[in-house]
Amino acid sequence: MTAINVQNLDVWFGSVSAVRSVSFSVAQGQSVGLVGESGSGKSTILRAMTGLAPDWSGTIQILGQNLTGSTRTRGFFKKVQMVFQDPYASLHPRHSVDQVLAEALHLQGMDAINKRTEKLLNDVGLDPRFRFRYPHQLSGGQRQRVAIARALAGEPEVLLLDEPTSALDVSVQAEILNLLTDLRAARGLTYIMVSHDLPVVAHMCDTLAVMQNGSIVEMMTAQALRAHKAVEPYTRELLAAST
């Protein structure tokens, strides 16, 4: 079953066009990666899906729902969540971990918030003693775990990952990637992962789309990439630069 279907997507900011007629689809439970350098429009696609980039045309269908403009229903946010690149910027500096998670649970209409907060912390591998700490008392990896826990609060089906590990050290990156792998296996999540790092995307995703200047240059499976079956020169260039 198709979880996400994007057809002829164009996104622009003012008069600048950021994404040009992009089409791809993601099956339920699948994980798709968007790879490209800065300015290639890869994050913009996620922002258009979530309504953070209001000016777009084309079709975006997520879990059978046709999206329009920048307004999304509560039902949408319950099923689709996003994890941001910089865990230093994606947590409110004055809210403790407890506040962040309790508020997300409350907004998602969950009951037994206290118990669920504990469970969320446990699910993302954070010790309960972190519950009442503030972001500045946490390391980058711990913050990203909190951000992932927040995204999981409404028990979503689709996670949009916007460079979730590019601000982290490699050893922490490994921990977060493993966590994301485990969560996907345990909950049957569908992922779209955006990254500039080809090995990371190849590690996490079944299929990947290479983007340049707002368009998809090449789409292939991670296996094909590993077998050096990339055709487009740009993909080969990226490959050469990242090994």
Partner: peptide, 15 residues
Amino acid sequence: ALPRLDNPRTHLEVL
């Protein structure tokens, strides 16, 4: 800990 293209694994080694 680095993911490698020539060595696919389900889990990365954690330090």
